[in-house]
Amino acid sequence: MNARILKLDEYLVDEEPFYQATSDEIAIFEAAYVNGLPLLLKGPTGCGKTRFMEYMAWRLKRPLITVSCHDDLTASDLVGRYLVKGGETVWVDGPLTQAVRSGGICYLDEIVEARKDTMVVIHPLADDRRVLPIEKLGSMIEATPEFCLTISYNPGYQSVLKDLKQSTRQRFVALEFDYPGVGLETAIVSRESGIDSETAAKLIKFAGMTRNLKGSGLEEGASTRLLVHAGKLIVSGITPVSACRGAIAQALTDDPDMLAAVNELSSSIF
């Protein structure tokens, strides 16, 4: 029945990813992992959640299977489905099933974006049953002890639709992510992009300004990711003001006044 043999190695993280811890998140993750508890990473986009998962997968030597959720993602996309190949029906495991079978770490990024029926398959995995029901096969698979379910969620979007239900939330050990402090963030940005720490510090000052604008014109301030992008442009010879304009301001808003305001802020810093 298992037509496709999972190539575990593909999902192993071979080299140590650079991850700058900001608090005790590594210890908590490890403790949750050994106890078979699922995790919820909360926090705004671009503050290191994905990188953290890569790092933990490397540390724990488990394959990492990441799914970015979107509004067309259904339960079958996660669990698996029958396909017809050369006149035969073949069952193909979805990523979640692959992770459950192989004892990998499954990371469902931005879980609230997915369709509601996906929660139905996640819930039995996230409590102490640790099983995955596969309706199509009429079977349940029990997760191996190595399997780990992690989901992420951005509480910043103030919308009822995009809220995580209590019944889901309460099954997970939550880790809160936020922008690292000025010192750490400077270190991360200069290491990731290769710019000198003085320019990195200015980028972080600029990010602070955009974060002040959260709720008064911007939905979200500049994330660490955007700073890394701007830093890379600067290393390639783009002027800092243009880099901020292209890699940060345009990513934050389309509103012409806000764009102009954000650009005025960056040009006053550099």
Partner: peptide, 15 residues
């Protein structure tokens, strides 16, 4: 006003 006000809110301290 839109631009100037946005700029002002970006500076630190009191709104």
């Amino acid at each position: 006003r839109g631009i100037l006000h946005g700029f002002l809110q970006g500076l630190s301290g009191r709104r």
